[in-house]
Computed example of a mutant assay.
Amino acid sequence: MSPRVGPQGPTRPTRPTPTLAFVESPVQLLNVLEWAHGSGRTPGAPAGDRPPDVTVVVLSPGDPMTRGQLRRMAELARDEGHRVRWEEARGGSTAPLRTVRGLTPLLREANRVVIGDPFSRYVQLLLTLTRAPELVVVDDGTATMEFTAQLAGGERLVRWHRRGGRPGPRDLLFAPVSGAARRRLTPTGDRAVEVFSAMPIATVPEGVRITANDFSWTRSRFGPPRISAGADLVGTSLVETGVVDPDRYLDAVRALARAHGATRYFAHRRESPEKLHRLATSTGLEVCRPDLPLELIARRGPIGRTVLSFPSTVVHTLPLALAGTGARVAVCDIEPDWLTERASPRAHGFLSGVTGTARDVHRLRSVCAG
């Protein structure tokens, strides 16, 4: 590249700001790619400025399904020109210390740090080691809504389905690190904080810049999909997180499939094999285990003309990914009597809010209504 000529002679080409992104799930990595494609340029930079120079660090979990999807997403990230560093961050008792020690030099050099899960203890610990002047939080699903509300209220960071319970011994032991991470995620005169999200943000923390994720990278990279005449059903891990009773969930899936003629069930990566086997046997649905986030699977197609979902991230993201295709997303609310005794007192209100704030979706009147 030839040097640019400025008013006082040749100048060097502008180098992209070194950016370090930490991801623990396929959806987080997808949203890092969306951020880098659209809104990841230096704030205030002129049109045509170079995209950020991103090193993606995968803090690999132990779950085989999540690892498989992350490896596929890592291939896509490399195809986009990003560097990917795979860390076996949970591979034994010494892995966390080894991982943190290896990442410390990168954290000290980075001018911008992107994270996908501000509730992750791993990420919170890493945040305490950086002095980067820019921090970006990309979506990890509906948890982003809870994160911004807690940050705005000065509350401790805790996942929505765990709220209402007493902090455990590990929570108390980790509290100083969690508090320090929350302070790092609070904007100051020397530090800018951005939230890149497809979720509705009801309460914007003071000083935080909100940037909309419209899934422009996904739409430019995949599709448009072939739309089939039938319906597809999207699974959820609310049973696995202890929020919804498994028998009630199975009854709801059966009723939805019967009422809307669904033939395929796209499993969430955290759904257990035992639950999925029972579901397939009792409903006759074809259970699909996607190798990529559902937004990419739907965009590649084929996908049903109607996509049925319970309250989850996809009721916000799928309408964006499928914009202009003719497919519609329909959401079925979680009834109060489906919740387990272990569910947080806030669970029903939070799930209702996920549905109520979704745009461009059809809200089902009951589990059997169209």
Results as ranks from 00 to 15, higher is better:
residue 185 L to I: 05
residue 178 S to T: 15
residue 115 I to F: 04
residue 126 L to M: 10
residue 219 R to M: 08
residue 142 T to A: 06
residue 205 P to Y: 09
residue 124 Q to V: 08
residue 210 I to F: 12
residue 168 G to C: 01
residue 114 V to W: 01
residue 143 A to W: 11
residue 128 T to F: 01
residue 202 A to N: 10
residue 215 F to W: 03
residue 143 A to I: 05
residue 201 I to H: 07
residue 210 I to Q: 08
residue 201 I to F: 02
residue 153 G to E: 04
residue 146 E to P: 00
residue 123 V to S: 00
residue 137 V to F: 09
residue 122 Y to L: 01
residue 108 R to Y: 04
residue 139 D to C: 05
residue 141 G to S: 08
residue 208 V to Q: 05
residue 176 P to K: 14
residue 124 Q to P: 04
residue 174 F to Y: 10
residue 112 R to T: 07
residue 106 L to V: 00
residue 192 A to T: 06
residue 201 I to W: 05
residue 114 V to C: 02
residue 128 T to L: 06
residue 163 R to N: 08
residue 105 P to L: 05
residue 154 G to F: 12
residue 112 R to F: 08
residue 127 L to I: 11
residue 196 F to N: 06
residue 105 P to H: 04
residue 200 P to N: 04
residue 106 L to R: 13
residue 156 R to Q: 13
residue 174 F to A: 11
residue 172 L to E: 08
residue 104 T to R: 14
residue 153 G to P: 00
residue 116 G to C: 06
residue 130 T to F: 11
residue 139 D to A: 12
residue 112 R to Q: 11
residue 201 I to A: 12
residue 161 H to T: 14
residue 164 G to S: 02
residue 147 F to N: 08
residue 110 A to H: 07
residue 193 V to L: 03
residue 128 T to H: 12
residue 130 T to Y: 05
residue 148 T to R: 07
residue 109 E to F: 00
residue 141 G to V: 10
residue 196 F to I: 02
residue 161 H to V: 05
residue 167 P to G: 13
residue 143 A to E: 14
residue 107 L to R: 07
residue 159 R to D: 11
residue 123 V to L: 02
residue 180 A to M: 15
residue 212 A to E: 15
residue 171 D to A: 00
residue 125 L to W: 12
